[in-house]
């Protein structure tokens, strides 16, 4: 199968170019810094707590959890309780009960928690930047070095060459996600221990009539939650990768295409910050990247913005980018 060898060619080029190594090195550095920061924060929080409440013994959190559990049970039985709160209360209680049963201080970090949190933080800017570094070079790199000529005068149709590059990008995106996960687990494991994969995590938030709706919240084990987070991150990586890929075809210079797509991303963060009223902004891909927020319920509910909406918008951008890429690439004159 020729496509397979073409992809092999592309992957070998990527390995030799050291770009993949570079991306992984950045990951290692950033995760280490992030993990160290988390450790510091954790220690400071503990210090503050013990200062305020005189909690020094390590198992004091159990008393607190017991207390909270009792409170929540009371609340659950209160006739004046809001029906909507019921499931979120149940979910909180289940989590506390799990912490008590497994002697897990809810304040403590774990590799499972950390790796998930890391990706939740990385999904809208850091991960896209890594992907851009890979994707923006795939076609424009060959254009600026002139090697594109060598590639396109073979007895292989242009669309197949481009498809092999696109599939390579998809594969490398998996690899980046894979290493982001493995590295964050390993590095944070040294700081916080490797456990925590079965702790319950609340999810299932929805937006109803512009408000966060917690009535259908439920717990999933941490490993499943992490899986969902990384899957969404992968989707985001594919989206950003496709768009950078298109720009790298249109622009032909690696530096320019990296510049364009990065400034677009950063602008997106500004836009989502300042122009929330402006209806059209929600159709921009940059403001829809925080998919994991829909899982954790930690988003600012905006009327009409749901997981399905964001995914549809992102998918639209991806498909458009891919179509433009292929049409332009197969038609263009190579003059370098």
């Amino acid at each position: 199968m020729k496509l397979f060898s073409l992809i092999e060619n592309e992957v070998i080029k990527m390995i030799s170019k050291k770009r993949l190594m570079f991306v992984l090195a950045i990951l290692v550095v950033l995760i280490s810094v992030f993990a160290y920061g988390q450790k510091q924060t954790l220690e400071r929080t503990k210090a503050q707590l013990s200062q305020r409440m005189g909690i020094t013994a390590t198992d004091d959190w159990r008393k607190l959890a017991d207390q909270q559990l009792i409170d929540m049970k009371n609340r659950l039985e209160s006739p004046y309780r809001d029906e909507k709160d019921k499931s979120s209360l149940l979910v909180r209680m289940e989590q506390l009960q799990y912490n008590l049963d497994h002697n897990l201080n809810p304040l403590e970090q774990s590799a499972a928690k950390f790796s998930t949190k890391f990706m939740e933080q990385a999904i809208f800017l850091f991960l896209p930047l890594l992907i851009i570094m890979l994707a923006a070079d795939m076609v424009s790199g060959e254009s600026s070095s002139g090697t594109i000529k060598l590639l396109l005068v073979r007895n292989v149709p242009r669309w197949k060459i481009l498809l092999s590059k696109y599939l390579t990008l998809i594969i490398l995106e998996v690899i980046v996600l894979f290493f982001a996960f493995v590295l964050s687990v390993i590095i944070s494991g040294f700081f916080f221990g490797f456990g925590g994969w079965f702790a319950p995590i609340a999810t299932g938030f929805k937006v109803l009539a512009g408000k966060l709706d917690t009535s259908s919240v439920f717990n999933v084990p941490q490993w499943q939650y992490s899986l969902m987070v990384y899957s969404l991150a992968y989707f985001v990586a594919v989206v950003v990768g496709s768009i950078s890929f298109m720009i790298s075809i249109l622009v032909k210079s690696t530096a320019a295409s990296i510049g364009i797509i990065m400034s677009t991303l950063v602008a997106g963060n500004f836009i989502s910050f300042f122009l929330t009223d402006w209806k059209i902004t929600r159709y921009m891909f940059m403001v829809n990247l925080r998919l994991t927020d829909y899982l954790s319920g930690s988003f600012q509910p905006i009327e009409g913005m749901t997981m399905l909406f964001s995914i549809t918008v992102l998918l639209g951008w991806t498909i458009a980018s891919v179509i433009i890429s292929f049409v332009y690439f197969t038609k263009q004159d190579i003059l370098v």
Partner: peptide, 30 residues
Amino acid sequence: LSNVGCIIESPDMYKYLTGMENLLQFAAMN
């Protein structure tokens, strides 16, 4: 194009690969 081999203007090769790896790249396409 199955019948053509060519050099156009400068012989740009993948500089980060060895000569052999470059040839293997093109061999894999045929």
